[in-house]
Structures are given as structure tokens and as C-alpha cells.
Design a protein around this nucleic acid. Structure first.
Length: 589
RNA sequence: CGGGAUGUGGCGCAGCUUGGUAGCGCACCUCGCUUGGGACGAGGGGGUCGCACGUUCAAAUCGUGUCAUCCCGACCA
């Protein structure tokens, strides 16, 4: 490729609307341009990168025995009604009508369609197991798209779906994918950690997320908090929304503070835990904090020892909901007649659920920390009042107990007891044992050895192609620009004649360029009549892994060979330079 | 959906307080000069100042509305 003809425009400045490095650099270096919020044009350089990532994914998927296909981007409403997700998916699902007023949606994922494909095409256990995948654009109407390619609304994804006859078969298919995923990300130049993750409303099913760990806490690109154990024999790692919190003891008996019997006390203006601690002169560990969530339109009260934090996903799972949000202060008034800071579970069975919400009574879900507390303090469901000296037996019996705590750094690993560490992570892949969630609902069955019909045991496996490319930029850049891993770089090498007016430099550069092409290297020659500084800045910004510069030293028969990743510079002959690139390229194949 | 901010040429920004017919840097085109780290000089093209309505002799500037974008939060198979 000749730089003078390449469709690329690098910018002198970072775009003002970008926040994270991958977004800033990909725009500035001319890889992407925004069309509208969360939707980007992949310009030629970006498209080359994406195709490289795709091809690595494709090679490893094919090697694992999976078969590639392509499903439609637009899907009919009926399929989503069959699976039940039409009503649960929410606004993220981009819904539209065709000219006949039929409901359609843009595919955010393809479980419904693949289940349709399988029930049409798979009739017998003899056809199983099978794993089908595709690489395609997805659309999710994210509440808040951000961070460029890391959280776009339209993005490229590889999604695979396995079909097995048994749970054991599924586990085998799952393991095959887990192994393939490590290879894929490693080949993309990304070290990943597979972490246990929340399995959503499905509950109980196994799920792992592949995280690119981002140590820099200043970096917002890592949107997930990952807890992990450094014990080599253990290896526990989990997303914060799933990490098990190990109970730790604390001073939890209010009797030590004079709360020997249940009574209601005045606690004016104590709307926060801190204020309440101060007013009653007790530690937060003898206070049971109450928080109201709206789970699938049902009000839910969650309880936890007040020095701990709720993990909403765990609350959601504990009550079996699909969607959850914390209630607004005005809603508290509506439901309880008490203001923020004073709601509590005593007498909750008498609280009437107002119009606009679902449910007959308010479900109470308590964290396991509540179980060891005695004579504690809790909101009285009356503004400016709390109960003290409360025990669990005072709260009624219809309480769900579960781990609904957010794990904290330094807590003990649930598997080995060593302290847990936390870091940020970018989720680039997700593998998931679905079971019969879709096949059962959509009546996707096969005939087994005994002539009996049984639903497919399914698994699904995603990789964010565009997100993986962006994550690579997050992990591989410096102050000058991108440092693409060789395997996914748009081109392997750029050849720079310093001065296109110097015949000898130009001649050597052209020769090198030609040799590289002949050897199958993806090379660019910067034949622009620009000053050296411009060419060097651009080559570093765009992130070519290697640069061969033909400058003044051509008179001595030497060129400069520079490695982007390390900054290492060698003065060698043109043939040696070509050889270095060729062997590096062969090495990644 | 709550809170905050911003919309002026491809990118980055000034002008707005105090209304008077749009400017700077980069990029782009032409010529000259220059050529190992984002040169220099001269000339040139490109914007109905997000949109609508209003106030006014006159609106980028004031008012109202609306749309878009970004940030924080909420949310996120």
C-alpha cells in the first residue's frame, strides 16, 4: 500500500468527545469515525484490524470443530415471544415495524434464531453434538454508549452456540470453547483471565467472562471490577457481581450499647448511616441497613449490616428478577410513608403496594450478615424514628437469606482463604452454559437413542470482535500512539524514505517494499512528499509494529530498523531488515 | 430517566458578558523554498454559527422551545 493513496487522515489533536485512550487514539490515528452516538464507521485501517481478529477467531473456532454460518440481522417478534424475551429484554432491544406492521427487532444476540435453526435442522441425537457460530454486527440500544468501540451500540461479535444431548456433553463443549478462547486472545496479543460471572436470571448455570485486566485505576476503560486470588494453587477469579463474600465477624450485639429490649426511639434527621451512628453513638455493625429496590416492578426490601454494601446483581438474583433498580426517594414516600433513611421491615406486611407496581406484598431479602446480629438498630418505617434492640425473630418469617454483599478488597478468598485482590477488567468474551432455557421454551427437540424427544442442551459463547481490537489498544499504546500486536496490526511494517526527492533513498525504499510484498508481508511505503517528522509521527500514531527508514545512511548501505513495541533501533542492511520482518511475520502464523 | 456541560468549516478552539453581517491554529488547494522528528513564505477554497420560533432597524451574541453530543449517576444477555 502506498501511503499517498491510503484512505486515512490522522489528526493533530485528540477528539474532544473521547474519554478513554483506545477511543482517542483510534479516532486520531484515522481508524474510526463516529456516525452517531455509539455507531462508528470502520475506516480501512480499522477494517483490516477487525478482519485480522475475525480470522484468528475463525481459525480457532474451526479448529475446535465449530462450523461458521450467518444469521439474519433482523429478527421477527414471534421468535422472541416464544422465548419469552420480547417482554423482558427492555429498551436495549431495538424494536421496529415492517410495512405490514409486523414486529421486528435488530439482533442483539441470536439465541432465538439459532434455536429456530436447530429445531429445523437437527432431528436426531446422531447429529449431535454440534457447534454453530457466526461473526456479525449486533445492535443493542445501550442506555449510555461510551468509550468508543468498547461500548458501542452497533458492534461486531462472534457468537457461537453448542447443542448437546446431555449436561456432560455440554460441559465438554464448554471446555473446548474455554480452551479455544485462551488461544484466541493470546494470539491477539492479549492476556486474559477467565472469571466467574453472574449468570443473570437463569440462575445456577455456569458462566465465565474473559477479562483483559487493566491495572491502571485511572483508566475507565476497564468497566468491570474483577476480584481474584493470587494463590497459584487456587486461581479463584470472579466479577464483582458474582464474587462470593466470606463472612467476617464484627461487634454485632447491640446489648453492649444498652439495647436490651425492643423499643422505638426518636432519631431526628438521621438520614444516613453516619448520622445515625453519631446520634446513637454505636458502630455501623449493629445497624441493619434497609434499602428498597424495584425488581421487575415489584418493590423489594433488602437488608444488610450497615458497614457493608449491596451488590445489586446479587439482590436481583436472590429475588429471581430480571431487572432491578434502587427506588427513588419519592417512591419511598409513596410506598412506605417514610422518608429515606427510616424505612424498615417491621410491620412491612401491612404496607400496601401502590398503583403502578406489581406484587401483593413486599419481599424482604436479607444478607447473611443479618443472621449473626443481635439487638440491632433498624428503621421504624416512620420518619425520624428507628427501632433499637431488634432481633431477627422480630422481623417475621418470610425473609430470603442470601449473600447480597459486594465483596471488598482484602476479604478472604472463598476457595482458599487467602486475601482477594481487585482490578479493572474489559470483558472481551463470555461463555455460558445455557442448558434448556431456550430449547425448552421454543420446543427445540431431538429424538434420543430411545426414540424419546428431548430438548437440546445448549451453550453460548461470545467474543466482542470490535471490543477486543479496542482492548488491544488500551493495553498496547504509549504517548506517541498505538503499538499494535503484530498479529492484528493493520499492516506489519512501514517503509519510510526520508526524502522522496533523494533518488537513492527512494530507490532503496522501493526495493525493500517490493521484496516485502513478494515475501507476503503486509507493507506500506510512505511515499508522501512530507518531512521526516510528519512521517515518523504518523507511523508511531498508527502503530506499525516495524519501521524501516531509508535515510542518509543508505550511502553506507544501511537502513534504520525500529521496533514499535520496544523502541529498539538497529542500523542494518536492507536485506537484513526485510529478513527480520519476514521471520517475525512467519512466527505469528 | 435524574444531575452537569457543550453545539461556530474535516479536527481543536476564540468571538457571546456590552447585538452591527464570522475569526485563529491545524488540515486542504496553488506557487516558492525546505527535507532525520508534526518547517517557512505568499496566495486560495470551504461555515445560512445544531434547528425552530420570538425580541430588534439589525441576532453566532438576547429570550423560549427543540434536537444532538459528551460527562457523572442510574442501567447494562
Amino acid at each position: 500500500m502506498r501511503m499517498s493513496k491510503m484512505f486515512v487522515q490522522t489528526l493533530r489533536d485528540f477528539p474532544s468527545d473521547a474519554e478513554v485512550m483506545s477511543h482517542k487514539l483510534l479516532v486520531r490515528a484515522g481508524f474510526i469515525r463516529k456516525l452517531t452516538s455509539g455507531v462508528y464507521n470502520y475506516l480501512p485501517l480499522m477494517w483490516r484490524v477487525l478482519k485480522k481478529v475475525e480470522n484468528i477467531v475463525r481459525e480457532e473456532m474451526d479448529a475446535s470443530g465449530a462450523q461458521e454460518m450467518l444469521m439474519p440481522f433482523v429478527q421477527p417478534e414471534e421468535l422472541w415471544k416464544e422465548s419469552g424475551r420480547w417482554d423482558v429484554y427492555g429498551k436495549e432491544l431495538m424494536r421496529l415495524k415492517d410495512r405490514h406492521d409486523r414486529g421486528m427487532c435488530l439482533g442483539p444476540t441470536h439465541e432465538e434464531v439459532i434455536t429456530f435453526v436447530a429445531r429445523e435442522g437437527i432431528k436426531s441425537y446422531k447429529q449431535l453434538p454440534v457447534n454453530l457460530y457466526q461473526i456479525q454486527s449486533k445492535f443493542r440500544d445501550e442506555v449510555r454508549p461510551r468509550y468508543g468501540l468498547l461500548r458501542g451500540r452497533e458492534f461486531i461479535m462472534k457468537d457461537a452456540y453448542s447443542f448437546d444431548t446431555t449436561q456432560e456433553g455440554l460441559e465438554k463443549s464448554y471446555k473446548i470453547m474455554a480452551d479455544a478462547y485462551y488461544r484466541i486472545f493470546e494470539r491477539c496479543g492479549l492476556e486474559t483471565k477467565a472469571v466467574q460471572s453472574d449468570s443473570g436470571a437463569i440462575g445456577g448455570a455456569v458462566s465465565h467472562e474473559y477479562m483483559v485486566l487493566i491495572d491502571d485505576t485511572e483508566n475507565n476503560a476497564g468497566e468491570n471490577d474483577v476480584f481474584f486470588c493470587k494463590n497459584k494453587n487456587c486461581g479463584y477469579a470472579a466479577n464483582a457481581n458474582h464474587a462470593v463474600s466470606v463472612l467476617e465477624s464484627a461487634e454485632v450485639d447491640g446489648a453492649k450499647f444498652g439495647f436490651n429490649e425492643l423499643k422505638k426511639v426518636d432519631t431526628p434527621d438521621t438520614t444516613t448511616i453516619e448520622e445515625l451512628e453519631k446520634f446513637l453513638n454505636v458502630p455501623s455493625t449493629v445497624i441493619l441497613k434497609s434499602m428498597i429496590y424495584i425488581a421487575d416492578k415489584k418493590p423489594v426490601m433488602a437488608l444488610i449490616r450497615a458497614d457493608k454494601t449491596f451488590e445489586e446483581t446479587k439482590v436481583m438474583n436472590a429475588v429471581g428478577a430480571n431487572e432491578i433498580r434502587s427506588a427513588a426517594p419519592a417512591e419511598l414516600e409513596d410506598i412506605f410513608g417514610a422518608s429515606k433513611g427510616f424505612v424498615g421491615p417491621i410491620g412491612i406486611e401491612n404496607v400496601k403496594i401502590p398503583e403502578g407496581y406489581d406484587g401483593e406484598k413486599i419481599q424482604v431479602v436479607a444478607d447473611l450478615t443479618a443472621k449473626e446480629m443481635k439487638n440491632f438498630v433498624i428503621g421504624a418505617n416512620e420518619t425520624d424514628k428507628h427501632f433499637v434492640g431488634v432481633n431477627l425473630s422480630d422481623l417475621g418469617s418470610d425473609i430470603i437469606f442470601a449473600d447480597i454483599r459486594l465483596v471488598e478488597k482484602g476479604e478472604k478468598c472463598p476457595d482458599c482463604g487467602e486475601p482477594l485482590f481487585v482490578t479493572k477488567g474489559i470483558e472481551v468474551g463470555n461463555i455460558f452454559q445455557l442448558g434448556t432455557k431456550y430449547s425448552a421454551k421454543m420446543n427445540a427437540v431431538f429424538t434420543d437413542e430411545n426414540g424419546k424427544e428431548r430438548p437440546f442442551i445448549m451453550g453460548c459463547y461470545g467474543i466482542g470482535i470490535s471490543r477486543t481490537a479496542a482492548a488491544a489498544v488500551e493495553r498496547h499504546h504509549d504517548e506517541y500512539g498505538i503499538k499494535w500486536p503484530l498479529a492484528i496490526a493493520p499492516y506489519h511494517v512501514i517503509v519510510v524514505p526520508v526524502n522522496v526527492g533523494e533518488e537513492k533513498q527512494m530507490k532503496i525504499a522501493e526495493e525493500i517494499y517490493k521484496k516485502l510484498l513478494e515475501k507476503g508481508v503486509e507493507a506500506v511505503i510512505d511515499d508522501r512528499d512530507e518531512r521526516a517528522g510528519v512521517k515518523f509521527k504518523d507511523s508511531e500514531l498508527i502503530g506499525f509494529p516495524f519501521r524501516i527508514t531509508a535515510g542518509k545512511t543508505v550511502d553506507e548501505g544501511l537502513v534504520e530498523f525500529k521496533i514499535r513495541e520496544t523502541g529498539e533501533v538497529l542500523k542494518i542492511t536492507p536485506d537484513e531488515a526485510v529478513e527480520k520482518v519476514v521471520s517475525a511475520v512467519q512466527n505469528i502464523k
